[in-house]
Design a protein around this nucleic acid. Structure first.
Length: 458
RNA sequence: GGCCGGGUAGCAAAGUGGCAAUGCAGAGGACUGCAAAUCCUCCACCGGCGGUUCGAUUCCGCCCCCGGCCUCCA
């Protein structure tokens, strides 16, 4: 398997440090509101990586954290006059529900920042002891110049970082690049007692600590959105290296590209922030997933309504193929080689999707039952690797474009029987009238030799 | 300004130093009472200009355009 390693800037052959225990960590959401579609991209993309790794290695430990202590959470809680836990519980549950709707498997572990405060304080002590951190005005700060490798991931020199700085530097910092490990909390703010006073952790620390606690000092893969490369991941690298005698935090760094909305950047000020939570009201999560996987994960993805519709129709074609194949699938021993090869090449999901259509065409072209059974099994196995095609075709084809169908399936079936009788009597005027009537309700008819099938228009 | 990524058919999106995948849309055909579905055929000279090469969309340089990031709070 080849993966593009952001640290080295090229594709490298992926070889886990321990093939019997592959470790991977993805930066998860800060749970202060619903996840937006940009948050869904890494979850979906690295879910495919998780599935692929499980296919290859006996044990994959995949941790995706929940940031449940953060100033945005504190603000949201204050605005609604509720404890922060109310906010974080609500949106952690919403996040997991949204991800599940997009066929994102639960990670092996979902550690939370607030469950690791003692470990964070312990790491702070180690960093203080080694001289990589210092106290100032109730804060504990990481001293960036103490880590010579700083900037290696984002390919930035210190000069560039300082030149680019567009915010005022807090007066208590020894170096402009220094960042907070611990900061004081006011009495109203959530906080934990420590020898530095009552406070709370800085954002970057949690990932380093939770990786150390659950996965080890050096993990195989660390992934997240490209916006996290600097400073978040750079800071994680520095902390962990200084706490671990210079040993690297991760062997492979993967970053997914950003997402635009209808050719514009997604931002609150533009008011175009799309939430899967809302999209799921009108389209199946599987369609959102397909659309997110339609572009290579490192490339920018322009999210559009048209693209989402295309994803639905593409899935229609695949599910129609599955439905028309008679008989049971022959379970595939492993996913088809074409799909595996595409994904093994730095998660080339568009190529994998193309391979899905190649299978579908072949399946639609043959009438050999044995071959059909094999291809059906391969389609299902390939779909499973991508997190697609796992529901009954009838279920997919009859879920319509959101909301309840205008007529119930019993009524549809009755009309189909009536129409079949009309066709048998060569009363095509009546048959066409029934078809038009159903079409007006969004029901598409497919006539067969003996009976007709129906599905809802997408 | 610095760093990073991208510009491939109407749309979306892979890919390769020498026939440019795939899906949707479109054209024609087969099938069908007519459709739908399905199958077959057709539809791109790969942002611009130079360079390297027998040969570049693919490598190198410059330019143009688009996007992201450029730290603690927002």
């Amino acid at each position: 398997m080849q993966l593009y390693n952001s640290m080295t800037g090229r594709k490298e052959r992926f070889q886990p440090a321990d093939p019997n225990r592959v470790t991977m960590y993805v930066c998860g959401p800060t749970v202060y509101s619903y996840a937006h579609i940009g948050n869904a991209r890494p979850a979906v993309v690295f879910d495919v990586l998780f599935r692929l790794l499980r296919q290859t290695y006996p044990q994959v430990v995949y941790a995706r954290n929940l940031t449940d202590i953060d100033d945005k959470i504190i603000q949201a809680a204050a605005a609604q006059s509720v404890p922060t836990e109310v906010i974080t519980e609500r949106f952690a549950a919403a996040y997991n529900a949204d991800m599940a709707a997009m066929n994102v498997l639960p990670p092996t572990l979902e550690p939370r920042a607030t469950q690791h405060v003692p470990q964070m304080l312990a790491m702070i002590e180690r960093l203080l002891a080694s001289g990589a951190a210092y106290e100032a005005e109730g804060h504990v700060l990481f001293h960036v110049p103490s880590f010579p490798g700083y900037g290696a991931l984002s390919k930035r020199s210190r000069e560039e970082m300082i030149d680019g700085a567009r915010v005022e530097v807090a007066p208590y910092k020894r170096d402009p690049a220094d960042f907070v490990l611990w900061k004081p909390s006011t009495p109203e703010q959530p906080g934990w007692d420590s020898r530095f006073g009552r406070g709370r952790p800085g954002w970057h620390l949690e990932c380093s600590v939770m990786i150390e606690s659950h996965l080890g000092e050096t993990i195989d893969i660390h992934a997240g959105g490209i916006d996290l490369k600097f400073p978040h991941h750079e800071n994680e690298i520095a902390q962990s290296a200084c706490a671990h005698g210079g040993r690297a935090l991760a062997r492979f760094w993967l970053h997914n590209g950003f997402l635009d909305i209808e050719d514009e950047k997604m931002s609150k000020s533009l008011g175009n922030v799309l939430l899967p939570h809302d999209l799921l009201q009108e389209v199946p999560g599987e369609a959102i997933r397909f659309a997110l996987l339609a572009a290579h994960y490192r490339k920018p993805l322009n999210w559009t309504r048209a693209g989402l519709d295309r994803a639905r129709h593409a899935l229609d074609r695949l599910y129609l193929t599955l439905r028309r194949l008679p008989g049971e699938a022959m379970p595939a021993a492993s996913p088809p080689a074409g799909i595996l090869a595409a994904l093994a090449d730095d998660l080339n999901t568009p190529k994998a999707q193309a391979a899905l259509f190649d299978l579908a065409r072949e399946a639609n072209s043959t009438d050999d039952p044995a071959r059909q059974a094999v291809l059906k099994g391969e389609l299902l196995a390939a779909g499973n690797l991508l997190g697609l095609l796992q529901i009954e075709p009838e279920q997919w084809l009859r879920q319509g474009s959101g909301g309840e169908p205008a007529i119930d399936s019993a009524a549809i079936e009755r009309l189909l029987v009536e129409r079949q009788a009309a066709r048998a009597a060569r009363d095509f005027e009546l048959a066409d009238r029934i078809r038009d009537q159903l079409a007006a309700e969004g029901v598409i008819i497919e006539d067969g030799p003996a009976a007709s099938r129906w599905r809802l228009a997408g």
